[in-house]
Design a protein around this nucleic acid. Sequence first.
DNA 1: GAGCACTGC
Length: 779
Amino acid sequence: MAKKRKNGAGDGIRIGDKFLSLDGYLTKKPKTDASQSSSESPPTNTEAITSKEGVSAANEGLLTSRNGPSSEDKRSKPIGNPKFFEARQALPLWSRQDDIRQRLRQNDVLVLVGETGSGKSTQVPQFLIQEDWCQRKKVKVQGDGGTQEIAVGGMIAVTQPRRVAATTLAHRVAKEANIPGHGKKDAERHGPLSHGIVGYSVRFDHRVPKGTKIKYVTEGMLLQELLRDPHLRHYSAIIVDEIHERSVDVDLLSGFLKQILSGDKAGRGGIPLKVVIMSATANVGSIKNFFSESGEPEAVPEAHKTSVDFLQVEGRQFPVEITHTPKPVPDIQEALLSTLFKIHKQESLFDKHGRKDILAFLTGQEEIESAKRLIEEHAETLPQGVPKVVVLPLFGQLSMEAQHKAFQPTKDKNTRKIVLATNIAETSVTVPGVRFVVDCGKAKVKQYRPRLGMESLLAKPISKSSAIQRTGRAGREGPGKCFRLYTEETYESLEKTDLPEILRTDVLNAVLTMKARGIDDVLAFPLMDPPEFESVEKALLHLHILGALADDVSITDIGRKMVMFPVPPPYARVLIAAATPKNDCLLEVIDIISCITAGDDIFLQIQSEETKEEAEEFRKELWRREGDLITYLTTIQLYAAENADRVRWCKDRKLNTRNMKQAMNIRKQLRGLCVKQKMMEQPPADPQPFYPVNPEKAATILKCFLKGFALKTAILAPDNSYVTAHGKHVVAVHPASVLHGQKKEAIMFLEHVYTQKNYAKKVSAIEAQWIVEAMERSG
DNA sequence: GAGCACTGC
């Protein structure tokens, strides 16, 4: 039996769902699942899944039914490190391994629904690597130069939406799957992933030992591999994990997998590719249909029909009791305050499962900060004898240290932790010790509006599946309670799932991705949720303006070059413009793009008044009158020239150290790619002395950016507002910009977001004439 | 005067 987990211990906390699958190994399975224990409590995620008897052998009418696992299956004994056998055998998924193998022998696709802690991300690839169909095979294929013999298969790729999930899973599975003793010397020298059968590949970090059978990758990385290897010949199987998150990348990947599955497999020498789709939510009907339906039934010969099987396994969730408000709450802050203190007064601080802290989901930084003030004020009035509270904010723009505080157990035994978090705590990170969840029912979502070419960021009601996900956060370590600050009717009125990202973002990159991978008719490409025609049309037009597509909508050499760069297409276009001998500012442009694509703003917001003055004094040497882009350039150049203490340097200027490090990684990657593309010579290594760019050079750099962003320009109107050159909308310069409150003849902005107002971000001062020139030259 | 969250040879 698995050992009982020490509560509040540091094991694998805070790294998202994947790392928390450690729970699966260390936590004793609760005796009662929600479905059996909580007849009076509202349905939880667990119940929704287990109520269907756990398994459904929905065969989609395409295969013969079976009577459980085959008795002649000789591989039920684990391979790998015996140290982990016991823990692995205790996982809910373990007893299903023969079933899973059987289903995949008879089907092309298996849709597997299993909650966090079922062990699906770690175990399924290990179940499959010894299968006959999973072995590398030599086959003959027709190539350009006639018939050639190639090797197909042998590896399994497991995709993850986040880098940290891919790397932590790989480490975990390497420990389980590698035979101890093998390659010991390598392991001592280079770590556990230097040998053996498990590897990973994520941006900036690749560990793929010779002989790798299981490779954890980010979704984007597999898309990138598709560019070189359209038939995925290295792989016998692709496991798509966390498909319910529905990133643009996973949607595209699903389309390409569907094409490979329904194609004639000639590119793979007739060797089929197996696909396992894994999801945490039971709501997978449309995904099943997507893979089993062929677009045109008559056109597909019977032999190429894709057979899809479906399996559900129970997770390891403790029951969570849900309470809705009887009436809609007029004031969310007030409702939050009373709910938090009701929990705090009525509930004990500890029980046999450990700490009982509170996690509240709010929409954004502003709401979190004002709630924090209110709670702290109210906490002052708590009577003697009532435990204290400590309020910890948690959102993306917080510094690493501040985020870390929310994960640490409180030191004082008589204090309850209240974490006020954005959506970051829904999927990206896990706060340990949480047994109570308070859910405001809303989240800020980005939505792209193709007609306006801008996006909005507004608080909207969450989906049912998101509400269930939030609720589940209370039942990770023991039985929990969830308080929804909305009525049951409101819950029932919520959409089943969130709108997939591909329907919420600019499909510019998605369309170029397809074009570069040989999709001529992007409207015919199979997608689970195809974007509106207008969005695709807009993207095609935009790509044409950028020079990535020719008049006949075929991809150009510029377009092919653009997809080589891991940045959005307009930025890739700027890189290409900067590399021409006339402009010759590639290093500078790489520096700027690295800062911008490193994540959120590298400049942290300054919280208190006192630090503000100090930091602004330091920041003044970075500011440039040309605007934000040249300010970024100065910043990263000074950072790269700083040789003593870069962390200190960032702290003084209130820069996000994490993003600065990321920017330096991107800078290195882009420099490498540009050298490889013969766009420049190998640049000298850091640190280089800092010379501020002169105004002429700055103008050249901004003109290069106009090659990618000519549509995002505005001209100062007589009433001192900025009016966009295309569309004639009024935009305001965002307060975070160095050009906020200044009047310039014209501006170029890289981002255009509606929040409180129509804001232009990442703003530079330009001349109106440059806009005309940039459009002409694009011609 | 204001800041959901991820990601890419």
